[in-house]
Amino acid sequence: MVLNYFQRKKERSKYIYILLIGDVEKLVNIGEVEKNLKKEFGFPTKILNSEINPEDSYDPMRNQYHSTKILKEMLDNLPSDALRMIGIIPLDLFIPILTFVFGEAQLGGKVGIVSLARLRQEFYGLPPNQSLLQRRLIKEINHELGHTFGLVHCSVRECVMSVANSIADVDSKGVSFCNSCRELLNRNRKELFNAI
């Protein structure tokens, strides 16, 4: 099929990439993540195995990985057809001003990342719980991608954009966006859609 110029341009960057950094597929069901992304954001997805070496971002003093450094590498290696890219990593992440992060994202940018480390029950000495891990992961992915679409933190406690400082906060919030965040998300998505 021959695409006209406009269609080709539109084709150029319309995927939400899911970047797997390390042995992610052993831990979570990526198919479910894709399904959720299509539903919440309405863009097609692509899965990519990362070539980033997280050891470059390791901080021996904290025994954690600097998530902004990983985001920078993701940005440097962004595929041309990527509208957004969300990284999933099993390692424990941090940024200098916080004791740890579940995730980090560029506000109104292209990339975000989520760590599985503290979403797993094993971290708290509990027996594994696959469906809970999956639910937590989807919340955090929606939250971080929400940031990339320009959403800031929301004071509606059920909203996925509310702040989580602990795993209990992650569990007590909802999977999806409240009405006002949804509205803003749709507006920003539409602008994007018109721009590409």
Binding site: F100, E104, L107, G108, G109, E144, N165
Partner: peptide, 14 residues
């Protein structure tokens, strides 16, 4: 940060 404004979500402020 080097890559502009980012939001980090997690624990407490150092």
């Amino acid at each position: 940060t080097e890559i502009g404004v980012t939001m980090g979500d997690g624990g407490n402020l150092s």
